[in-house]
């Protein structure tokens, strides 16, 4: 399968908000190792294949689920009814290519674009 537009590796890095993007361009599914959910698609700016893992994690401190923690076995308990990251998160280009002027310390290696997804 070929993409309509090739990945523009030369596009300089820019912290640019692209607004809302059609959900048809992206997919969402559990990661193979069960660590979280992967949102994958094509970056609307540089057209590179972007793939972001949203891991299950405990953000720090809180008060919910103490009884579940006491009696849970095996894996750590996870919140139920969690909103899907595809529609609730702001997505950043993570095409993996360090575009020109890409900051060396960024966690999201890509062209710098960000967007939300709507259905």
């Amino acid at each position: 399968m070929t993409r309509a537009v090739r990945h523009d590796h030369g596009k300089p890095y820019a912290d640019e908000d692209l607004g809302e993007i059609d959900a048809a361009l992206f997919t969402q599914g559990p990661s193979p190792d069960g660590r979280g959910v992967i949102v994958a698609g094509t970056c609307p700016r540089c057209h590179g294949p972007t793939r972001t893992l949203f891991p299950w994690a405990r953000p720090g401190t809180g008060s919910k689920g103490v009884l579940s923690l006491l009696f849970a076995r095996g894996d750590t308990p996870r919140a139920e009814g969690e909103p899907d990251p595809l529609l609730t998160e702001v997505h950043l280009c993570e095409c993996g290519h360090a575009h020109p002027q890409c900051p060396p310390d960024t966690s999201y290696v890509g062209c710098g674009a960000s967007w939300r997804i709507r259905r």
């Binding site: 949203f54 953000p59 401190t61 809180g62 689920g65 103490v66 923690l69 919140a79």
Partner: peptide
């Protein structure tokens, strides 16, 4: 010091809501 809680699907917006 907080208390241990359930894990969430951690993204920027989820962290902002949790905070």
């Amino acid at each position: 010091h907080g208390a241990p809680e359930r894990e969430i699907l951690l993204g920027g917006q989820a962290l902002r809501r949790w905070t």
